[in-house]
Amino acid sequence: MAKSVSTEFYNKMTLSSVLPLAALLAAFFFTQPVSATNIKLASWNMEWLGSGNKPQRGELDYQKLREYALKLDADIVALQEVSSISSLRLVFGQDYRFELSERNHDQKTGFAIRNGIEYRRMPDYAELDWRGNQMLRYGTDISIASNKSGALRILNVHLKSGCFSNSHSNKSCKTLKPQVAQLANWMLLRDRNKEAFIVIGDFNRRLKEKNDYVMSALKAALPSLHSVGHNNASGCLVKKGEGVKAYRSFIDHILVNEAILPNVDEESFIHHAFAKNDVIERELTDHCPIRVTLKNQ
């Protein structure tokens, strides 16, 4: 059973009102289940794609990103740090439709959705920008048809950077805490409406570390919340100066509620790493994509 956010640093946050209209819309658009199929769902931070900021990418860089997108072979990709749909077409081609948040900034969240997958674009979850000044990234929200629950909500997030673990205590942590409370609000609204949901993206937080207080706060609000996959990110190499560096644990995550968990193929979780020479020679991204399969969607 869902609980209120009860951790000490969130006790001043209040839950938003439940909107029955959201449930009515989901029922209206997805009254008939689609034929059972598997959907490969991924997350990929594209590192300022198409923004004109560093890294500066040329034709060969986009060609290599395109090769990795083909290898990823995902049906839905939650994207972070994207400036334009035109830049996404250089990576994913014409086989996908694209959605980007309405935030007026070069770092947008969004989705690449393979042609043929029915979905409905929901309003951005702008509450993650809790100051209301567009300095924090919005969540992008879509709903897809699901045999399990009628509709599956997928929220793509990119939370504040700089507060990666319990060992950090800084301004970034003070900014992150209200974002996490707002995220808990979104989850609780879905749960109260009996909606299956997935929250995916760049949390900028090592949620799988023991006793992580952000994950503890989310699970205090929704005890059935589950984090998909393992925590060994060591295979991911990214550029550092003239060389490369490897991550030790994930800050990109896939969180699911109880309603969709039986459809998540845990064994399918994959961390798509880049070849070392490609990292050195090309301008790829500073995150490696992660992917999981949803069964019988």
Rank of each mutant, 00 (worst) to 15 (best):
D191T: 13
M46I: 11
N53E: 14
A145I: 05
L128A: 08
Q94W: 02
K245C: 15
N45K: 07
Q182W: 07
A2V: 15
A145C: 09
L218G: 11
G201S: 08
D95P: 04
D73R: 02
R205A: 07
A246V: 10
E281M: 10
S161Q: 12
H168P: 01
T31W: 07
E127C: 04
P223S: 07
H105S: 15
V91Q: 01
I39A: 00
K245A: 15
L218D: 13
Q182V: 13
N231C: 07
R282L: 13
L136P: 09
S216P: 02
G241S: 05
G50A: 10
V256E: 03
D75S: 00
L183K: 05
E81A: 08
S16P: 15
L152M: 00
A233I: 04
Y247N: 10
L72T: 06
S84Q: 14
L225M: 07
D75T: 02
H158T: 09
N133M: 12
K171P: 12
V279Q: 11
V199S: 08
L65F: 03
G243Y: 05
G132A: 01
K171W: 13
F92R: 04
K108T: 07
F28Y: 11
T285N: 12
L25G: 11
R114N: 03
N38I: 03
I280T: 04
F197S: 03
Y96N: 03
F30E: 00
M13P: 03
I85G: 09
G58I: 12
K208R: 15
A259Q: 05
W186S: 03
R190I: 01
R137G: 08
Q63A: 15
E99L: 14
H253M: 02
Q179T: 13
V157H: 02
F29M: 04
Y213V: 14
S249R: 12
N170C: 12
V18E: 05
T175V: 11
K210D: 10
D61W: 00
F28Q: 11
P55S: 06
S161D: 12
S234V: 12
I280E: 00
R282T: 14
N193M: 10
N296F: 00
S83V: 04
S165R: 01
G235R: 07
D61F: 03
R121M: 02
P289S: 03
